[in-house]
C-alpha cells in the first residue's frame, strides 16, 4: 500500500502561457508575473528577485532564441506557495551549458551574468538545451524563500 505524501510534491495551482515575440510582450509578461507574485503575497524583495530573473531570461530568449513563450504557474509545495516560470524557445540552443552557467561567460557582448546571476536570484533553476532545437529554462521562486 502506498502512503500519500504531502510534502515533497509540487502542485501547480494555476497556469498561464504568454507568447513573447516583440518588446511590448516583455512588458506585458513582467506585469503578469508581478500580478501573480503579489497575489501569493510574495515579499517585495523576492518579487524584485523574481522579476529581475524573468527579465534576464526573457532577454536571452529574445536575443538568442528569436522569441518564444513563457508559462507562468502558481505552485505549491504544501508548505508554501511560489511562482514557477518556464521559458521555452526554438532558437539555436546552447552548445555548452556548463560554460554558459559560469560567471563572466558570454557569446554576445553582455557581462555574462545572465544565467548564473539568475540562478542566484531564484530557489530552483533548471536548464535544458539542444543545439538547433531550442532551450527551456525553468525557475521557481517561493513566496518566503
Amino acid at each position: 500500500m502506498r502512503i500519500p505524501t504531502c510534502q515533497t510534491m509540487i502542485l501547480a495551482l494555476s497556469k498561464d502561457t504568454i507568447k513573447v515575440t516583440q518588446e511590448q510582450d516583455v512588458v506585458f509578461l513582467k506585469n503578469r508575473v508581478k500580478e501573480v507574485a503579489v497575489k501569493i503575497k510574495m515579499g517585495l524583495v523576492n518579487q524584485t528577485r523574481l522579476l529581475t530573473a524573468a527579465s534576464e531570461l526573457v532577454r536571452n530568449m529574445m536575443r538568442y532564441g528569436g522569441g518564444g513563450s513563457c508559462l507562468i504557474e502558481v505552485v505549491s509545495s504544501g508548505r508554501s506557495n511560489g511562482v514557477r516560470l518556464t521559458f521555452t524557445d526554438k532558437g539555436q540552443g546552447i552548445p555548452d551549458i556548463e560554460a554558459a552557467m559560469r560567471d563572466g561567460f558570454s557569446t554576445g557582448k553582455s557581462l555574462g551574468l545572465g544565467l548564473p546571476g539568475t540562478k542566484r536570484l531564484v530557489n530552483e533553476f533548471s536548464i535544458k538545451s539542444k543545439v538547433g532545437e531550442g532551450t527551456t529554462v525553468t525557475i521557481v521562486k517561493w513566496a518566503n524563500g
Binding site: M1, I3, P4, T5, C6, Q7, G78, R79
Partner: peptide
C-alpha cells in the same frame, strides 16, 4: 496503521 502514519506525518508537519 496507515491512517496512523498519516496522522503522525501531519502532526509533525
Amino acid at each position: 496503521d496507515n491512517l496512523s502514519v498519516i496522522t503522525f506525518e501531519t502532526f509533525i508537519k
